[in-house]
């Protein structure tokens, strides 16, 4: 058995031009080129993609779920950022 397991990569796929890449899953690979090949073979066997991004999982910086409330708190009390906050008379059109 290999002494050390191949690194993990996260796979993002653009299903067609005009759409964003979207997380599909992950693959193990020895290097970046192999990660692309594995991602293609694992996640696009039925032409699910026109473009693939792979990135080492350990390079992803993520917010902490345990801190979710505090982390996103600044947006909570700013309802005036939404258009429905404002009262506009019905007679006024195109607004």
């Amino acid at each position: 058995m290999t002494k050390q397991e191949w690194p993990l990569y996260e796979v993002f796929i653009r299903s067609r031009a005009g759409l964003s890449h979207r997380h599909a899953g992950s693959v193990h690979a020895a290097d970046d080129a192999m990660a692309l090949d594995h991602a293609r073979d694992t996640y696009t066997r039925r032409s699910e993609g026109v473009s693939i991004w792979v990135v080492r999982s350990d390079r992803i910086v993520a917010s902490d779920p345990a801190e979710t409330a505090a982390f996103f708190e600044p947006a909570e009390d700013k309802v005036y950022r939404h258009p429905t906050f404002y009262d506009i008379p019905d007679e006024v059109e195109n607004l």
Binding site: W6, A30, D31
Partner: peptide, 22 residues
């Protein structure tokens, strides 16, 4: 398949850019 996994690892180590030492 062990030798394939090991060879791929060795190849990756050899060609790894100096900056990618995560």
């Amino acid at each position: 398949g062990a030798w394939v996994r090991e060879a791929a690892r060795a190849y990756a180590d050899k060609h790894a850019p100096a900056t990618a030492a995560a």
